[in-house]
Design a binder for these strands. Structure first.
Lengths: 247, 247
DNA sequence: CTAGTTAAAGTCATTATGACTTGAACTGAT
DNA sequence: ATCAGTTCAAGTCATAATGACTTTAACTAG
C-alpha cells in the first residue's frame, strides 16, 4: 500500500473520487420501522415492522426494508421521513439514524452504501397503514430470510431499540398522547421480552418524571379504571442536529 | 411531490439516482481521533485530537478532520482505518462509526455526504506521530473554527465518547497493555472533566471486573508503587459486524 | 352483595453509592 | 536511621436505589 502525502489527504473532491474508481458506490436510504401490535396467539402487544416485496432482481419476490434513493432537495433525515411517507404512508413519532452499511458485496451488481434510519410509530398509525399485495407487517423476532443484508440490519435496529429503552424515554413514542402506566409497562415487556414487576415499575416511572398525570381515567375496561398520563419530554430523535440546534 | 409505486421503492440503482439529479452527492470518509496527552499548564492528562490543514479551497488554511475518499476495495470500516494510517500514521485501538452527515450545504460547491468514524489511540502512538507543518494536535475542548461542519462533528464525537465512557469499557483503549488503577481514573477524569474519588472508583473497577491484576508494579515513581492491571475484554469497537460475527 | 381482577401504594431486606477514615508502602530530606 | 510527605489500597458508615412481596382501593360480572 502506498502512503499518501499527509497534507493532501483531506481534499476529497468528486474529481478525486472518480479518478480512483470507475464506478462510484450508489447511495441509498432505508428505514426500519417498529410498531406495537397485539400478537396473533396471546394477544399481548409485540413488536412488528412493515416490509415491502421486491418486484425486481436482485432478490426478486423476497421481502425487504422500505427505502429509496436520496432525494437531492432534502437532508438525510428529511429524505428518510419523506421516503417513509411515500412508501408506507407512515409519519414516525421518532426517527433516528441507525448506521451506514457499506460492505463490498451487499448488492450483487454495483456497490451500494445504505444509510439506514429506524423509526417508531404508534399502533393507531400502524393500523391505518393497510396491507397490500406488496406491503405487509411481520413480527420483529423470528423473521424469514430477507433481501440483501436486511436481516442483520433489523437485528441491529432491535439491539439499538432495546439499548435505548433500557434507560431512556423512547417508550412513549410507541404510544399515543395519553396512556396508562400499565401500557408503558407493556411496551417495555414487549421490547425487552421479559415480564416486569408492575409495582416497582410504577415507582420508577413516577420518580423518573418525564411524565405527568392527567385528571382522566381510561374507561371501558373490566376493572378499576387506570389513570391516564402524558409524556412531557422531547418528541424528536437523538441526532447531532437536535443536539446543537438549541444554543 | 410525486408518489412512487410502493413495491418499486427499494430498487435503487445508480441509474435511478442519476435520473433525478444531475450531480449525485459525493461520498467522503473522515475520522475523529482522540488521544490522551498531558495538558500544557497543569500536566494532567487531557483529550487531544489531530487535525490537518487544508491546502486547497474551500476553507483553505483552516484546520479539518483527517479523511479521504472511500476506497473501492475496502469496507467502510477498513477504508477508515486505512485512511487513518495513510494520513496520520496512527493505528487505532478502537474504531467505530460515528454518524453519516448529509446536510445540504456542508460543502459550498457540491453536496458531500460524509461517513464519519471516531477512534481512540494510545498516548505512546500519539507521541510517535510527529507533527508537521500541516498536521497538528489540538486540545479537544475549546477548538478554534474548523473547516466545513467539523466543529459540530467533533462536539458530537465528544458527546458519544463521554456517553460510552459512563458505563462501558472503552477507557482501556486509551491506555497501553498494562496500567494502574490511577491511570484508568485519570482517563475518566480527563474525558468526563471532573474529579472522581479514588477509593470508590477503585472499588467499582474491581467488581466490574473486565480487568485482571498482574503481579507487576509500576516502578520509578516517587511513592508507593501501584499494581499494574490488564484489560481482559474485547479490543474492537462496537459495530454491527462484530455483533453478529460471534454466532 | 360477593367473588374476581386490576390499580395504586406501602413494607422490608438486600445491594449500590458517595463521603470519609485508616493503615501500608515508598521516597527524599533532615 | 528516622521522619515527614505522598500515594496506594482497603475499610467504615449513612444514604439511596432496587427487587420481592403485601395491603388496600376501585371497579365489573354474576
Amino acid at each position: 500500500m502506498d502512503r499518501m502525502a499527509v497534507a493532501g489527504a483531506t481534499s476529497f473532491s468528486a474529481a478525486n473520487i472518480s479518478e480512483r474508481a470507475a464506478l462510484p458506490p450508489a447511495l441509498a436510504l432505508s428505514t426500519v420501522i417498529f410498531a406495537l401490535r397485539p400478537s396473533e396467539n396471546s394477544g399481548r402487544p409485540t413488536l412488528w415492522l412493515p416490509l415491502v416485496r421486491r418486484i425486481r432482481e436482485p432478490f426478486k419476490d423476497l421481502w425487504a426494508l422500505p427505502g429509496g434513493p436520496l432525494t437531492q432537495a432534502d437532508s438525510l433525515q428529511d429524505a428518510a421521513a419523506r421516503n417513509l411517507q411515500e412508501t408506507t404512508g407512515l409519519a414516525p413519532n421518532y426517527l433516528e439514524q441507525l448506521y451506514a452499511f457499506g460492505g463490498l458485496h451487499r448488492s450483487p451488481s454495483q456497490r451500494v452504501v445504505s444509510i439506514v434510519y429506524w423509526a417508531l410509530v404508534q399502533s393507531t398509525q400502524a393500523d391505518l397503514a393497510q396491507e397490500t399485495e406488496n406491503v405487509k407487517w411481520f413480527r420483529a423476532d423470528g423473521l424469514q430470510e430477507l433481501a440483501f443484508d436486511h436481516n442483520e440490519i433489523v437485528d441491529y435496529a432491535l439491539w439499538r431499540l432495546r439499548n435505548k429503552m433500557a434507560y431512556g424515554s423512547i417508550a412513549y413514542h410507541l404510544l399515543g398522547e395519553t396512556f396508562t402506566l400499565a401500557q408503558v409497562r407493556e411496551v417495555y415487556e414487549a421490547v425487552l421480552n421479559r415480564s416486569i414487576d408492575p409495582a416497582n415499575f410504577r415507582r420508577q416511572l413516577k420518580q423518573a418524571a418525564h411524565i405527568e398525570a392527567t385528571d382522566e381515567f381510561l374507561q371501558g375496561g373490566k376493572h378499576r379504571p387506570p389513570r391516564l398520563y402524558r409524556y412531557t419530554g422531547e418528541r424528536q430523535g437523538e441526532q447531532p442536529g437536535s443536539l446543537f440546534s438549541a444554543h
